[in-house]
Each structure stands twice: as C-alpha cells, then as structure tokens.
C-alpha cells in the first residue's frame, strides 16, 4: 500500500437526453422563461473579420439525421484570441466566442452565424530550459508529437451532446479555403489516417451573398468524423 493521493474524482457524464432544450434552449422546447437565452450570438456586433455561417447535419450510424442534438461552439476572434481572462489581449466588446445551436426538429439541419476565427498561437512550452523546438508535425509512430506548442490553423471547437451520446463529443471545424494553414496544422497532422482528415474540413460556398461553410458530422460508419479526447 501507498499513501492516498487525495484527489477528487471527476463526476461521471450522463446523456443530455432528448429534452436538453428545456434546460439549455427553452424557447425551442416551446416556452419562454428567461430574460435572455444564452449562446445565440457568438461574435456580437463589433467583431472584426469575415462574417460567415456554419451549417450542417449530424448523421447517425444508420444514415439518418440526429434531430435532437445540441452543439456548442467555442472559437477565437479574427485575431486568434479567445474571450477568456487568461488571454494576453482583449477581444472586441460583445465578442463571446461561444454559442449554442440546435437543429430543426423536422430535418436535423443546424447552423450558426459568426466571424471566421484567425489562426491561434501555440501555447508556451511549460517548464524551464532553453526555447523548445517543436517535434515534427504528426510525430513518430508512437504519436510523440508536440501539437500543443505549434501554431494552429483557423478552427472552431465543437462539443456535441444528445440522447444516446453518453459523454459529449469534441471535434473541430477547419476551413477548406485555408489549405496552406491546414497542411501545417499540428492537430490535423496528428490524425494518422490522412483520409480521415477531410472529415474536419468545412466546405465554403456563397448563398445570397453570404459565406456559408458546410460541415456535416457523421457519428459512425463511412467517413465517421474524427472526435478528440481533449
């Protein structure tokens, strides 16, 4: 026997269930209760950068849309800065960088409006010692990369919950018009199977003068989206 480390253990996850909207988006459940619901405006009116829409559908292993899913988005602004007290500079007034989106209950289609995020600077290397030289992108055959300390291509982080999803799924949206940055992105390069990387890249088009990125999420089966343990 050894000493007890005295850490607490994380509370286990449970599914958000089919009625997640009551708690997190009551208007969609069919009633009006709060002064304001959270998460409907990601960028705010003052954010610099290109205004975009990201939309898609979540598809289950049978090929059908998941109509009761809820997605949260977390992103940096166009300068690559997160709205967080530890960030080294401020973001635009009203830019929260976080949003919540639900589907159309009949079709499963979802979408949110925001600004396109900028590239995100690497985390400083922890510990003392000389300036760190990053390992090769993607690392060796034991996955010994150092992706946390390299600059990242523009991306939006997503967290997906629904009935039947026991613990929220994390993934990232990258952009197909950022091919050069994507090719150097340490997280995309960490995905050993190159044919799975495109599951994280949204396709740009224009509709009625608006920039729209399509990002379908496949929970299972052919072209299953890459999900991360963060």
């Amino acid at each position: 026997m050894a000493q007890n480390l005295d850490y607490l253990k994380e509370t286990p996850s449970q599914t958000a269930g089919p009625y997640v909207h009551i708690g997190l988006a009551p208007g969609a459940a069919g009633f009006d209760i709060y002064r304001s619901e959270l998460g409907w405006d990601i960028a705010g009116p003052n954010a610099a950068g290109e205004r975009i829409r990201v939309e898609g559908v979540v598809i289950d292993g049978t090929g059908n849309p998941v109509k009761d899913v809820l997605i949260e988005a977390w992103q940096a602004n166009a300068s690559g800065v997160y709205a967080h007290p530890e960030s080294e500079c401020d973001v635009e007034d009203g830019f929260r960088g976080w949003g919540r989106v639900i589907t159309d209950f009949e079709t499963g289609e979802w979408g949110f409006d925001t600004v396109k995020p900028g590239p995100v600077k690497a985390r400083r290397k922890l510990g003392t010692g000389p300036l760190h030289e990053p390992a090769n992108a993607g690392g060796d055959w034991l996955g010994r990369a150092d992706e946390a300390h390299e600059d990242m291509a523009p991306h939006i982080n997503l967290w997906i919950v629904a009935r039947g999803i026991n613990i929220g799924l994390n993934t990232r949206v990258y952009f197909d018009d950022e091919a050069e940055a994507n090719a150097k992105d340490p997280v995309l390069n960490l995905i050993e199977w190159q044919n799975r990387r495109p599951t994280l890249i949204a396709k740009r088009s224009e509709r009625d003068g608006k920039v729209v990125y399509r990002f379908d999420i496949r929970l299972q089966g052919e072209n299953e989206t890459v999900f991360f343990d963060i």
Binding site: D60, G61, T62, N64, V66, W74, A76, Y82, V120, K121, A122, R123, G143, D146, E147, A148, M152, H155, N157, A162, R163, G164, I165, N166, L169, R172, V187, L190, I191, R196, L219, Q220, G221, E224, T225, V226, F227, F228, D229, I230
Partner: peptide
Amino acid sequence: VARSPRNALISLQQSVS
C-alpha cells in the same frame, strides 16, 4: 448503438483552444 463513434478518440495535448 447508432450514435456512438466506432473509431478511437484522438487524444490531444491541450492547446489554448
């Protein structure tokens, strides 16, 4: 059953994101 990914999660070191 139909909503669970079959591939392993990719483990990330945490970045600023």
